[in-house]
Design a protein around this nucleic acid. Structure first.
Lengths: 171, 171
DNA sequence: GCTTTAAAGTTCTATTTTAGAACTGTCAAT
DNA sequence: ATTGACAGTTCTAAAATAGAACTTTAAAGC
């Protein structure tokens, strides 16, 4: 698969993976949510190569997740801050952290604890149904094709406008 | 960074990224949640190379996310099913899909819709506080070091038992 | 009996990505 | 005049991925 076409696939998971589904982007975003903003700060706390960091930051800016903003003139210096689109990644980050807390911690326990300012308590994130408020599980969800669904063919066969593509993948 | 040590870092996000943070794993897991179980089914619907698919399935089995189970004898054939640890990835998958639904869909609309069997409604996933039930946002959360937190040094400087490592990274 | 088909991989080379280190340009501070 | 901070860029070597062909076991069709 060509990864530069992943973002055009008729699948919201695939399109999001085009943005965050590589080895470094989620770690960079973790730093963003921990209020890091600058190139040197990212580089030194992650140990990412400068080359890759520059590339990933460009990609995140291109996708509108980060904004590159000058924080001083002469020499012109920039910092990277989360846009609203970037802030909206918070549930993804938190659900990843929570899964790690449950399934990947060692005997020392959790590296981080989270406190909800609204209620004051230490908490875990819980994913619930927007309609009834009950916690969600895979088995309680039924999936339907939406208006943007592909017709029949699998992802990788869609590119060419080959009239036989559909028949071929169904054989 | 060596990616085979990522899973030992004192960060639940990094440890989870060690499991799902590559280009294919999340797409494979999407298929798992859509009830796909077999090698050929994964391969043909994703277009992943057979080599990579075999590697990724091994990795997911090694991490306890999938279990490899024989479904027939002679010739012995196996299928891959989600463990409880794997099923617990559902909030991650759903939050990724939801972000894509909000920020990455084209004019045709969502590729998939989700119906909650419990209440019958089409829904979106919402992440709430386990203690007060309110929806979460990054700005309403305060982060504290937990019992498994690293002491002071950044990730990449922790490996060697070099007594100067700590001082060096603080300079 | 011989050939084809299916499933679940394995093996091979070519291409792309990433790692690791050094280098650049602009300015402020010493 | 030199050093250092910051935000990158440029290079080569190593690793990962793509793409295709090959393997094994056994059932099905002729």
């Amino acid at each position: 698969m060509k990864w530069d076409t992943l973002e055009e696939e008729p699948c919201s998971l695939a399109r999001t993976v085009a943005v965050i589904g590589d080895r470094w982007s989620l770690l960079i975003l973790r730093e963003c949510f921990l209020r890091k903003r600058r190139f040197e700060a990212f580089q030194s706390s992650l140990g990412i190569t400068r080359h890759l960091l520059a590339e990933r930051l460009k990609k995140l800016v291109r996708f509108g997740v980060l904004r590159r903003i000058p924080y001083q003139e002469s020499p012109k210096r920039y910092e990277y801050i989360l846009t609203q689109k970037g802030l909206d990644l918070y549930p993804i980050i938190m659900s990843i952290v929570h899964w790690g807390n449950i399934h990947m911690v060692d005997s020392r326990g959790r590296p981080m604890l989270h406190q909800h300012k609204n209620c004051g308590h230490m908490f875990d994130p819980v994913m619930v149904c927007s309609e009834c408020g009950e916690p969600l599980s895979a088995k309680a969800v039924h999936v339907h094709p939406g208006p943007g669904a592909r017709q029949t063919s699998p992802v990788h066969a869609m590119a060419a406008d080959d009239p036989k593509a559909k028949a071929k993948t169904e054989s």
